[in-house]
Design a protein around this nucleic acid. Structure first.
Lengths: 150, 150
DNA sequence: ATGTTGGAGTTTCTTTAGGGAACCCCAAGA
DNA sequence: TCTTGGGGTTCCCTAAAGAAACTCCAACAT
C-alpha cells in the first residue's frame, strides 16, 4: 500500500481520518448536509473529478456515513446522511468556527448559523459532556484507556 | 496544480482543510499537542516519511499553526502550538469523541480525557457559544454571511 | 422503431504527491 | 580527528488526483 492506512492505529483521530481524511470527503459531507444529494449536483458544486467523487461516495457509504438510496424508477440515486454521518457534521461545525475566526479576513464569514434554540446568530463551542463547562486542549488530562495499544 | 487548492473557496471548511486537510497533518498536530515536539520524535512515533514530515511541518509553520523554535545552542528545533494551533485542537477533540463512539469497538477508547473543571472522565460536546444549549447539525439554519461568494 | 436526453457513473491518460531508503550537514563530545 | 545524533535532502518508484472522453440505461419524443 502506498498511502499509509490509518484505520488500524490505536487512535480515534487516525480512525476518524480513515473515514473522512481523504481529500474532498469533508466537503462532500458538507454538501450532502446542506442539501446537495445527487451525483451530478455534487460534481457541479464541488468541481471534483467524477472518478474521485465515485471513489469517495463509495468509501463513505462503505463506512456507513452516507446511505445510497434510489429516488426514481429509473436507476437514479441520492446520498443521505446516516446517524453516524449526521454526528460527523460536528467535526465540520468546529472547522467552520475555526475557519471563520482565523481565516475569514475582511470579508467576514461566508455563511452564518442561526441556532434554533435561542434564535441568535452563533457558532459552536466545546463543552464537557459531563459538567457542561468549557473543555479545550488545555482543560484536560489524557489517560490511557481500555483500548490503548499494548 | 494537480491537487485542487481549497484555500480560495468561500467556505471555512475548505479553508481549514487547506491548513490541516493533507494526510498526516492532524496526527502531527495531535502529537505536538500531547508532547512530541521534535522532528525525530514525530518521525518515530508516526512512522511518517521524513520527506512528508518536513513538508507538513513547514506548511503548518507557514499557516501559523505551529512555531519552530530552537531549543539548544546546536541547530536543534522543536515545534510548539501557536494560539491558532491550540484552538485547532478543538477539531481533534471532536474527532476523538466521534471515533470513540463509532469506531472503538470492543476494546473501548484508546485514551480517556479527564476534565480539570469537574474531575470526571468525559468527552467534548457541541454547545451554542451564545446560549450554551446543544448545537448540532439539525439545530441550525444556515444563512448567507458577509463573506459569501458573489 | 429510431433518436434524444439526462443521470450516474467508467475508462484512459497525464501529472503530482506519498513511501522508503540512502545520503548530507553541523555542532558537541570522546 | 572520529563518532554521534538531530534535523533535514535527494532519489526512485508507485499510487492517487485531474481532466476529458466514453458508456449504459430508462424514459420520452418523432
Amino acid at each position: 500500500m502506498q498511502r499509509t492506512d490509518f484505520s488500524e492505529m490505536a487512535c480515534s483521530i487516525a480512525r476518524t481520518l480513515d473515514v473522512i481524511g481523504e481529500p474532498w470527503s469533508p466537503l462532500i459531507l458538507r454538501d450532502v448536509w446542506v442539501g446537495f444529494s445527487r451525483f451530478e449536483q455534487l460534481q457541479a458544486d464541488l468541481g471534483i473529478s467524477r472518478k474521485v467523487l465515485t471513489e469517495r461516495l463509495n468509501h463513505l457509504v462503505d463506512r456507513d456515513v452516507l446511505e445510497r438510496r434510489p429516488y426514481d424508477n429509473r436507476p437514479r440515486y441520492e446520498y443521505v446522511l446516516t446517524d453516524r454521518g449526521r454526528e460527523l457534521v460536528d467535526v465540520l461545525m468546529v472547522m467552520v468556527a475555526w475557519g471563520d475566526k482565523w481565516l475569514a479576513g475582511q470579508a467576514g464569514p461566508p455563511v452564518l448559523y442561526r441556532h434554533h434554540a435561542c434564535g441568535e446568530i452563533s457558532h459552536v463551542d466545546l463543552a464537557c459532556a459531563h459538567c457542561g463547562k468549557p473543555m479545550h486542549a488545555d482543560d484536560i488530562d489524557i489517560l490511557p484507556g481500555p483500548g490503548a495499544a499494548v
